Amino acid sequence: MTDSLRPHGNNRTPLPPTQQSADGVPSPRSPQSKQAQGDARAASGGAKQRDAFFDNAKYLAIVLVAIGHAWEPIKGDSRTLETMYTVVYTFHMPAFIIISGFFSRSFDASPGRLQRLITGVAVPYIVFETAYPLFKRWIDEDPSQEISLLDPWYLTWFLCALFIWRMTTPIWKMVRWPLPLALGLAMLATVSPEIGDDLDLQRVLQFLPYFVLGLCMKPEHFHMVRTRTMRIAAVPVGAVALAFGWWAVPRMNTAWFYHRDAAQELGAPWWAGPVMVLAMFGCSLLLTACFFAWVPGRHMWFTALGAGTLYGYLLHGFFVKAGDYQGWFEAAWLHRPLGEIFVTVVAAAGVTLLCTPPVQRVFRFAMEPRMEWAFKRDAGRLAREREKREGAAAREKVNA
Rank of each mutant, 00 (worst) to 15 (best):
Y210L: 12
I171M: 15
F158W: 12
I195K: 03
I139Q: 01
Y311I: 10
Q360M: 13
R361K: 14
W301H: 08
R203W: 12
K173S: 15
D378G: 10
Q145H: 12
I74L: 13
K136S: 07
E82H: 14
G350C: 10
L81P: 06
D324P: 02
Q264L: 07
I171C: 14
E330G: 05
G38F: 02
L354I: 14
R361S: 15
Y85V: 05
W333I: 07
M217V: 15
A189G: 12
N253A: 11
Y210R: 04
F135K: 04
M84S: 09
G380P: 03
P274A: 01
V362Q: 06
F128R: 04
L310N: 14
M371T: 00
Q49I: 06
M1H: 11
A47N: 06
R228L: 14
R29Y: 06
P250Y: 15
N11W: 04
A262G: 09
N10Y: 08
I67H: 02
A109F: 05
V191Q: 15
L354N: 11
F291H: 00
I232L: 11
R29A: 10
W153E: 10
A304H: 15
S27C: 14
G214M: 08
P16V: 03
Y59Q: 05
F102Y: 08
A349R: 03
A122E: 08
G184W: 05
Q326T: 03
A241M: 07
G214E: 07
I67N: 04
P28W: 01
W270N: 10
G350I: 07
Y132R: 03
E194I: 06
F342S: 08
T86P: 06
I126V: 12
F211E: 09
S21Y: 13
A42K: 05
T169G: 09
Q19V: 13
V240H: 11
F222G: 00
Y258G: 12
A348M: 08
Q32W: 00
A366L: 09
M367H: 01
R364M: 13
V63K: 00
S33Q: 01
P73E: 09
A131M: 09
V345M: 10
M167F: 11
W172G: 07
Q32N: 01
T2W: 11
G339L: 00
Q264T: 10
N11E: 13
L314K: 02
N253M: 07
E368R: 10
P236D: 06
V204D: 15
S44Y: 03
N10A: 09
F375G: 07
F128L: 04
F292P: 00
T156E: 03
A248P: 15
F211G: 11
P31S: 00
P152A: 09
L287G: 04
V212T: 05
G24Q: 08
L188P: 15
L150A: 12
S104G: 09
A182W: 05
W71C: 07
Q20E: 15
D39L: 00
K376M: 14
D3I: 14
F53L: 00
Q202E: 10
F375W: 12
W246K: 11
P180S: 01
Q202P: 08
V249K: 08
A392P: 01
R50D: 03
D142N: 13
E129R: 04
W333T: 04
I139M: 01
Q206T: 14
A243M: 14
R395S: 07
W157Q: 07
W172H: 09
W328Q: 03
G120M: 06
C216S: 15
A61F: 08
